[in-house]
Design a protein around this nucleic acid. Structure first.
Length: 350
DNA sequence: AAACAGTGCAACCGCTCTGAC
DNA sequence: TGTCAGAGCGGTTGCACTGTT
């Protein structure tokens, strides 16, 4: 025998709540507290089901709810926590005072997810996906030429960049290959990351612009030197995540941090450093080649290629910190930097 | 000015999980 | 051990809003 429904469907109102209903619910909860949702509607004089009352209270009427747009810090926190916790919206919401799981879920699906996709990041695995990157618009940017693009070879899959060179000569081939690639990745999704650490090391070039200017070491070496710091952080997560997901990466049961060395580098912020170095290099080259300096081109721009039809509603909108969406989009590429705040105790999630 | 399209978000549904009894 | 209520989640819907045509 199945469970009895949470409410009698007959005579139960649905749809948007009226101010009067809100007042009734608030007054009742202020007097009696938020308990026994099943009997609450009847006692409060509401023609709603208990679940609807609970959702209305927890997602909208609670006095500690914070309304308005998400700040940069909140967005960064969401992305970082999602990379560890997956779709545990309530756990994520617990780290964002005043935000509800539903609000975060909606914000993820409508803003962050799309932005990650545009930036070539798989929103499920948080792994870079070349097929998600808007490569076609990248190739048509006048500020970037093939030689600049090929300098990315230590960051991007060299095989893919060889393809990019042929795509520039044959645009139709690009379409075909992108379709093939998407099909291929659809099959491989949740199996293996596209870029492996050995690909970086095998293509190591001592003259690469990716050499760390402060140490004269290649970035890959710098990454190795910092690996103990990475392992510390990763170790903490893994240990504390054991009970949560059976020592597996939350989003991907077959993937652990330990089994994906590239991800360690990627989330530790070294990829951001690479982007920064690349960005400076390309800007330098761009200005030397006599192009319009007002259109500075950085690697950030590659990763934040706008959609062909940008959202008209947000084209002039500003965000909490006074930044436009364009600025935020550029900032989003910096979110690839992954740091676990020291104050964050993952035991709280368990 | 009106129709249309794209977008964001509150709210809902159906289901599973968890803890109390 | 089974039942129940509450909580959580993924997915979806409906509507208001805004820019474009």
């Amino acid at each position: 025998m199945g469970r009895s429904p949470c409410c009698d469907k007959n005579g139960v109102k649905k749809g948007p709540w009226t101010p009067e209903e809100d007042m009734k619910l608030i007054q009742y909860i202020q007097e009696h507290g938020a308990c026994n949702w099943r009997s609450l509607p009847k006692n409060a004089g509401l023609q709603r089901c208990g679940k609807s009352c609970r959702l209305r209270w927890t997602n909208y009427l609670r006095p500690d709810i914070k309304r308005g747009r998400f700040s940069f810090e909140e967005e960064e926190t969401i992305i970082q926590l999602h990379s560890v916790l997956g779709n545990k919206w309530s756990s994520i919401a617990a780290q964002l005072p005043g935000r509800t799981d539903n609000e975060i879920k909606n914000y993820w699906n409508t803003h962050i997810r799309k932005r990650l996709l545009r930036n070539g990041i798989d929103p499920v695995t948080h792994a870079p996906r070349l097929d998600l990157l808007d490569l076609s618009s990248l190739l048509h940017l006048p500020q970037i030429n093939l030689s600049n693009l090929l300098r990315l070879h230590t960051l991007l899959n060299p095989e893919a960049l060889r393809l990019a060179a042929s795509f520039q000569e044959n645009p139709e081939l690009l379409l075909t290959k992108l379709q093939e690639n998407q099909l291929f990745n659809a099959q491989l999704q949740n199996q293996t990351p596209i870029f492996q650490t050995d690909q970086f090391q095998n293509t190591f070039d001592p003259h690469s612009p990716l050499c760390n200017p402060s140490t004269d070491l290649p970035v890959t070496a710098s990454v190795s030197n910092q690996s103990h710091l990475i392992q510390e952080n990763i170790g903490k997560i893994s240990m504390n995540s054991e009970s949560l997901s059976g020592k597996t990466f939350q989003n991907n049961p077959t993937t652990t941090f330990e089994s994906v060395p590239f991800m360690e580098n990627f989330y530790n912020g070294d990829s951001y450093q690479m982007q920064k170095d690349l960005s400076e290099n390309i800007r330098f080259q761009s200005s030397n080649s006599g192009s319009n300096n007002s259109h500075k081109f950085g690697f950030d721009s590659i990763l934040s290629t706008p959609l062909s039809s940008p959202n008209p509603r947000n084209s002039s909108s500003t965000y909490v910190n006074g930044n436009t969406e364009d600025e935020r989009e550029s900032y989003c590429s910096n979110l690839l930097k992954f740091e676990i705040p020291e104050s964050l105790d993952f035991d709280d999630f368990m």
